[in-house]
Amino acid sequence: MRLARYRKAPELGPKILFFSGGSALRTFSEVLAGYTHNSIHLVTPFDSGGSSAELRRAFSMPAVGDLRARLLSLADDSVTGHPEIAALFSHRLTNRNGKISPEKGLEDLSTGKHALLKAIAEPMRSLIQSYIAEFRQQMPDNFDLADASVGNLILTGGYLLHNRSLDPIAFLFGQLIKTRGTVRTTTDADLQLEVELENGRTITGQHRFTGKETAEIDSPIKSIKLSGEADDVDTLDASKVAKETRKLIDSAELLVFPPGSFYSSVIANILPKGVGKAIHKNPAPRVYVPSLGTDLETLGMTLFDQIRVLDRHLSSRAANGRSKNSGIDFLLFDSRLLEISNSQVESIQNDLGIQIIDVDLAKDDEDLNRYDDVKLAEALLALT
């Protein structure tokens, strides 16, 4: 009955908060929007590879790729939304078939001549054009535009115009494309992820240890921290983490640590100071949904190990009068998709006091590396 009510009036759905990266929950977010338009997504701004690296080098800024991806996955692409804006946001500058060079494409966008921009009604067209023009004006001469995401360029232009702050531009474009939920980054400081391996090696830069672009992990990860300019690191205290972010965490009815790269997506969101304190203040249930398939970041780790690491970063032993041993309330998974020993089950339940919810989350096509998006959404909604 509750699920039926959510489907009938998703605008009145629960506030479920997800700490994640950008790509792991792409299709899941589309499904979730059918049940609630009030989900909250705090995504990481620490990507250091691909086109994000080019923007970060040029402007000394946080990564915006994950923010763009999640905004688009929650966008209303129906006739009641603004699919023409989403189409522009999804476009990439390319010179396939030798037709239009990336430089010419950016020029057409900044001067209002591009067909995708012309399809957008005023006053939104002029606003978006102003962000693109700002990006083009500040773009270094040696900037590589090949295959650049227009959405990333727009967000960057807005970031530069709004005093190097991501929250205003994330809010604005959430409104423009009618995002069915709230998407923010945990911080807009220009920082990198740095991991120390068990063998003593230190690796700086997310793309170097996720295994997506390079695979430099040859030993289990021992610890992770934020690194960057001293001024940026020092400002990440409880008074500097965005007030809006703290309010969003405080308003959540369920806190979810979802599937995704364990350190660079899940743990990374807890690292900025102020996030953990905001989590502690909220008595809402906390649930961990472990990833399926291969995650190089969990090399040498059992599921019990993952939960202990997550708990250590949450540091919620006595928050809100909790007498339990762990900062996690529920472990949600499907034992047919993720094997776990009886000893781990006993340790998770007895030593950490976590309730295990072992339910059917399998896809019908027998893909053992992904949860079924509908089943996972409905299982989480049942906990609200």
Rank of each mutant, 00 (worst) to 15 (best):
N163I: 08
D141Y: 08
M124W: 12
R164L: 05
S165V: 06
A148H: 02
H162L: 07
G105Q: 07
Q137S: 15
R136P: 03
L106M: 08
L153Y: 08
G105Y: 03
A115N: 13
G157C: 09
N152A: 05
S126N: 09
A146H: 13
Y159V: 10
D144H: 08
A121W: 11
H114Y: 03
S110L: 09
L160V: 07
M139A: 09
G157L: 09
R136S: 12
H162Y: 11
N163K: 13
I132W: 05
K113L: 14
N152D: 05
H114S: 07
G158C: 07
L145Y: 03
G105K: 07
Q129D: 02
S165W: 11
L160W: 10
M124V: 15
L117M: 07
Q129A: 04
A148T: 04
E122V: 07
Q137A: 14
A119E: 15
G151T: 04
P140G: 00
H162K: 12
L145S: 01
L127K: 13
G105T: 04
R125H: 06
L166H: 05
L153N: 00
I128M: 05
L116Y: 13
G158S: 07
E122K: 08
H162D: 13
P123D: 06
I154V: 14
G105D: 00
F135L: 07
I128S: 05
D141G: 01
E122Y: 09
A119T: 08
D147N: 15
H162V: 00
P140A: 00
L106V: 06
I128H: 02
F135C: 07
S126L: 08
M139L: 05
D141K: 11
D141R: 12
